[in-house]
């Protein structure tokens, strides 16, 4: 397993946000984490990125125990995240934001810029624009592009579809598939469960800090109880 989370508990003060989460992501997979608001999806991703401390449990990356490794060092290992709300640096240009993704990398970035501009031609047009003035869709492209600049082994994506128009959502998801096809493992958190399950190979269902189901994405998509709980009972609900 490339990434393993083993019975992790996370607290916010006295509140237990993650109550013993275990999950695995294998190399080359797209794994989705679905669940209602407040189920702990974002906390799980932040915990994996090292910006939420683990109380008990283990996190392993490529066999190495990284449970208590500082967040900034995990980027060097190959874990990079496009966070919830996109986390674009509002005062930096597109180019500067992309450079932030490669903050600790040495050597030429030309190839990486080319790859990002190739995936998101829109960003190439807006190189000099300041991040804070871009539209939601553009910011999402920038956030994903920035994470790719780190050349991650595992790309962590938190709600890439949030706030985007449906047409843009499907565009983003097809780009994620493309990124995965180029060899990057993806762990994805989504409220838009239909899109996520359509894209992912496997998925975990979170409920109030616990994983309640784990199955191939297609099985969950076909499961009536899951549909009722997370897919609004209607496949086209989000559209």
């Amino acid at each position: 397993m490339l990434l393993e989370v083993d019975d992790v508990h996370v607290f916010y003060g006295a509140v237990e946000a993650l109550k013993g989460i275990s999950l695995q992501v294998a190399k080359g997979e797209i794994v989705a984490l679905i669940g209602a608001n407040g189920a702990g999806k974002t906390t799980t991703l932040k915990m994996i990125s090292g910006v939420r401390p683990v109380k008990t449990g283990k996190v392993r990356f490529d066999g190495q125990d990284i449970t208590h490794m500082p967040g900034h060092k995990r980027v060097d290992l190959g874990l990079c995240q496009a966070p919830e709300g996109r986390g674009i640096f509002p005062g930096m240009t597109v180019v500067e934001n992309l450079e932030m993704g490669a903050f600790n990398r040495k050597g030429s970035l030309t190839e990486d810029f080319d790859r990002v501009y190739d995936l998101f031609p829109r960003l190439a047009e807006r190189r000099k624009q300041v991040g804070g003035t871009m539209s939601g869709g553009e910011q999402q492209m920038l956030a994903i592009g920035r994470a790719l600049m780190a050349r991650p082994e595992v790309l962590l994506l938190d709600e890439p579809s949030m706030g985007l128009a449906p047409k843009l959502v499907s565009q983003i998801f097809s780009i994620i598939r493309q990124i995965n096809a180029q060899g990057t493992t993806v762990l994805l958190v989504e409220q838009n469960a239909v899109q996520a399950l359509t894209l992912a190979h496997r998925a975990y269902v979170l409920e109030i800090g616990k994983i309640v189901r784990s199955a191939p994405a297609a099985d969950l998509l076909a499961d009536d109880s899951v549909r009722a709980a997370y897919l609004g009972g209607d496949l086209g609900a989000s559209a």
Partner: peptide, 20 residues
């Protein structure tokens, strides 16, 4: 760039590998 990143969004800066 690191200083500006931490100023603008410390958590995302960490996610980008900046040692706060």
């Amino acid at each position: 760039r690191g200083i500006r990143a931490v100023a603008q969004d410390p958590e995302t800066a960490t996610l980008m590998g900046v040692n706060i």
